[in-house]
Design a protein around this nucleic acid. Structure first.
Lengths: 251, 251
DNA sequence: TTTGTGTTTTGATGTGGATCAAACTGAAAG
DNA sequence: CTTTCAGTTTGATCCACATCAAAACACAAA
């Protein structure tokens, strides 16, 4: 309102880079495509994944309510998914990194159910859903792969329900750090030191905690020699110690 | 241990009733199958849904860790899904009623991720997953329908994350009652009076609350003239009042 | 009918994390 | 360089819900 030209600028910051996808040479292939595809099948898939799109930090890939027509494979960068409730309260429902698929929530109603916001400058491959459906019928490995991805999302979310429903604050945060660590490791990054792309508040929102509680837990873990934290930088000093935090409760 | 014969008996209580499915005449058809199928397609689907299985109250349809090979359509009865954590803590992750699909969590890893427990004597149609995959390739409405079902499960779970992450106790319980009411309504039952199939403890587990908190909320709603409760029987007296409970908070 | 067992209700008390508040940090903007 | 500001840390206090405890109740088995 105060700075209309800035607001407008932000609305047009979405950058469409119409680069051809190159699944065959993509080093995330084994994360987002089924194994054992023939050259020919890879070509078909490349033709389906028709656009690479850049999303700048702070911009949305899609918003709740928008018509769903594609799912997205994160090529680089980092996203949060956010559901906003009628009364304005919102919650972060997930964080997505390279090789992960975004947007599957939209299939059910034909509109997206959450906002996907880039937490750093990012790039995604856009996969039109109707093409995915068609190709799934031809390449049966693709169909199964896609089912698996959706199913894993269901399982991931029930894991979060567990976090939110039964764990205490420091257990949630230990689990969060270990989960990040494991996913980074699977992508060839160091599992013991990394940059958090999200704020304490976003972590808290995801874990059903307030930012102060997240901060206090980090401080406590540091005091106990489990981690080092400096702003967004984290080094895990004692993986087993972190694991024991949520094995450690009574009952 | 103390009563081995009883334990054995319970293990064999699963009843297999090899009845042929009759999707064509099933009054849940519009809930679990895509619309607009030809007679021929319906026949194919009936051949796929090859077994009706009865599960008695307290028995499991499947357990976490078991090999996944089928999804299940609830024909009658009521189930809870339960995830048990390494240390023994568990959480109810959902309740399923007639016309809903169970077991999609198993596709990702090839093993089930939770236990599905019948809360009353129930009957399911068993749908072998490999047959579902095959048929999805032939009947494209079926593929899309199945994708929608999985996607809705993802959306449902992010709704629960919202409950658990940001709502206060009485909001959660109001939302829970309204959700039940709406699902019963969609099945032709009364949306304003119904029997709870689950205990206060199971409701609490689902909502991340203790059973006493659930009980107190029910008492409070009763006192405020919103509902009548007598044991498992619930009558909603003021739907709008319930809705306002979670629109009513400050901020 | 009694007995037992699981479930629910209600009350009294405790506590983990929220809330409020203030100071601190680092990076970006001027 | 200083200013600004979003993000973070830390402390003090509060409160929603958990925990503990006991009584009431429902229902099935004996």
């Amino acid at each position: 309102m105060a700075r209309p030209e800035l607001a407008r600028q932000q609305n047009t910051q979405l950058v469409l880079a119409e680069l051809k996808a190159a699944c065959a040479t993509c080093n995330l292939r084994e994360l987002c495509l089924p194994a054992g595809l023939s050259k020919e099948e890879l070509d078909q898939i490349e033709a389906m994944v028709n656009i690479r799109r850049k999303i700048r930090r702070g911009e949305t890939l899609y918003r709740a309510g928008e018509v769903f027509d594609a799912v997205y494979a994160v090529r680089s960068g980092f996203f949060k998914s956010r559901v906003t409730y009628e009364d304005g309260r919102d919650q972060v429902t997930g964080f997505s990194m390279a090789g992960e698929i975004l947007g599957m929530d939209g299939i059910g109603q034909g509109t997206h159910n959450c906002d996907a916001v880039a937490l750093e400058d990012s790039e995604v491959c856009s996969i039109p859903y109707v093409r995915l459906e068609e190709l799934s019928r031809e390449i049966d490995g693709l169909q199964r792969h896609f089912h698996r991805l959706m199913s894993r999302e269901i399982v991931r979310e029930s894991g979060v329900m567990m976090l939110l429903g039964v764990m205490r604050a420091d257990e949630r945060i230990a689990a969060f750090l270990l989960n990040l660590s494991q996913r980074l490791n699977a992508r060839g990054y160091s599992p013991i030191e990394f940059h958090l792309r999200m704020t304490r508040e976003e972590i808290g929102s995801y874990l059903g905690l307030k930012l102060e509680t997240v901060s206090r837990a980090f401080s406590k873990f540091h005091k106990d020699g489990l981690i080092e934290v400096e702003q967004k930088f984290v080094r895990i000093r004692n993986v087993e110690g972190l694991k024991q935090i949520y094995a450690h409760h009574v009952n």
